[in-house]
């Protein structure tokens, strides 16, 4: 009986892991258009990117202001592979990362090791 419960419980936990880490996703934050016509959002870097999903429109320049609030070297750089841009993020300094998406789609950004992740959804 115990064995059955433990195994059912284990399968349940595995199901939760698969669902939580792989299948679900958040709806994200829309970037704000500034006076200069740039879509802008502040992204706080601490153990992850907040917000980690940013919605923008295609064809307009995007500026993400990264504010790294930790000294953990894992997050010292953010890389937007699809747009060919990256930036070093010194702790406590707001660093703008700019690019102009032309095609709608989902573009991932990540730390250099690919452990911290976020995405830009271009519509």
């Amino acid at each position: 009986m115990n064995v059955l419960l433990v195994n059912l419980g284990g399968l349940g936990v595995i199901g939760l892991i698969v669902w939580y880490f792989w299948l679900s996703s958040s709806s994200g934050t829309a970037a704000v258009v500034t006076a200069g016509g740039v879509q802008e959002t502040k992204v706080i870097v601490k153990g992850g990117y907040s917000p980690d999903t940013i919605r923008v429109e295609a064809g307009r320049p995007v500026r993400l202001l990264f504010d790294r609030r930790e000294a953990d070297p894992c997050s010292e750089r953010v890389v937007f592979d699809a747009f060919g841009v990256s930036a070093e993020l010194p702790t406590g300094t707001e660093v703008p990362v700019e690019f102009t998406p032309t095609e709608p789609g989902e573009y991932e950004f990540a730390c250099q090791m690919g452990m911290l992740k976020g995405k830009v959804i271009v519509s």
């Binding site: 939580y20 679900s24 153990g47 911290l116």
Partner: peptide, 19 residues
């Protein structure tokens, strides 16, 4: 403590890491 803060921050973002 960094394991817990790191793990929690990652968890909030639906990701998991060494921590």
């Amino acid at each position: 403590s960094q394991f817990y803060t790191g793990a929690w921050a990652a968890f909030k973002h639906r990701s998991a890491n060494m921590y």
